[in-house]
Each structure stands twice: as C-alpha cells, then as structure tokens.
Amino acid sequence: MNPDLDLTLERIIRAPRAEVWKAWTDPASFEQWWIPAPMQCRVERFEARPGGALVTRMSEDGTAFVPHLDASFLLVDELERIVFTNAVDSAWRPAAPEPVVMTAEIIFGDHPDGTDYRVIVRHGDPASRARHEKLGFAEGWGTVTGQLAALAEERAAR
C-alpha cells in the first residue's frame, strides 16, 4: 500500500467469508449492493475469472440505465482475493475511463466476528488518487461496503 497513490477501506462484516464471497461473485447478488442506493445496478457481464469482464450499468429511476463500469478481472482467488481494473475494458482494450483509472484489490480474510474485508484502490499518480478521494471515495465505497455487509449478514442470519 502506497499512501500517495492508494485509497483504502476496511470493515469487519459479521458474516462468514463464504457468504461475503458469494455476495461479491454472484451477479444477481452483486446488483443488490454495488451502487449506492437508491441508484440501481444492472450487471451486463460478470465473469469472475482472470481476464473476465465486469460490466455494469446504473439507473436513477430503474428504467433508463447508463454505463457505469467497464472493467476486467485480473485475479480471482476463491474466498481470498479479487483484483479488477478499468484501465483495460471488457474487450481487453486499453481504456482511459473518466473520472479516474484504477485497479481495485478486494481481500477477504477470516475474523472472529466474521469476515475481515479490505479494499485497496490503486491509482497511477497522486493527482488521480486525490481526484478519486475528492469525488467521494470514502463515502461511495463505504456506502456500497455497508450494503454488501447488510446483504451478507442478512443471509448469514437465515
């Protein structure tokens, strides 16, 4: 982790790691938490494997969906780690997405209370990191992580 280039988020999710992993890797579950509510998410492509596509759309009204994320998975280590980037789109073409190019690493660990969930979002330069932070990284990623936790915790309680 490089504090000049990376933004991080950590949370203990009170659900087993397998439940959090499932909420992350099942497209129907992913749609339920990936975008801050009340916005809605639609998964266009979700291939949780190295080189697989991660393409989502978002909507304010549930009717008109616009592009949100066109990315590629770089690494998918079951129950351990997911790495994806929007620097390479779902067709494996170099991309320069607005507002920021990033590579995100999601780490799933065991914790006595459930899952130690960690996010590291890497940027190519300090200006990109600062832009992402100013645009609301902590609030946005914090909100969706809360939504992920709520889904996984609810399922674990069943």
Rank of each mutant, 00 (worst) to 15 (best):
A64E: 13
M58A: 08
H123D: 04
E80W: 06
A104R: 04
V101E: 14
V66Y: 13
P94Y: 05
V121I: 07
P112L: 09
A71R: 00
E47T: 08
V144L: 10
D113W: 07
G52W: 12
M1K: 11
M58Q: 12
H68C: 05
D26E: 15
H111T: 09
L74N: 11
V83Q: 02
N2C: 06
P99L: 02
E80S: 14
Q147F: 02
E47P: 03
I35M: 02
V83T: 09
S72Q: 13
H123M: 04
R11K: 12
T115C: 13
E154F: 05
S128D: 11
N2M: 08
L75Q: 15
E60T: 11
F46H: 14
A96F: 03
V83G: 06
S72R: 15
R57E: 01
N86F: 00
T8M: 07
M39T: 06
P38Y: 12
P38D: 13
V100K: 06
R57I: 00
G142E: 02
A157V: 03
T63P: 06
D116K: 14
P36T: 11
V88L: 15
R158K: 09
R42A: 11
K134W: 07
D6F: 06
A96T: 14
V83R: 03
A96G: 13
L151P: 09
P94Q: 13
R93M: 12
T85G: 08
D116G: 08
Q147Y: 04
F65T: 04
L9R: 07
V101T: 15
M102F: 12
E60P: 08
E133S: 11
L9P: 00
D125E: 13
A87R: 14
D77A: 12
I82Y: 09
A157E: 12
R155G: 02
P3N: 00
A91F: 08
E105T: 15
R118S: 02
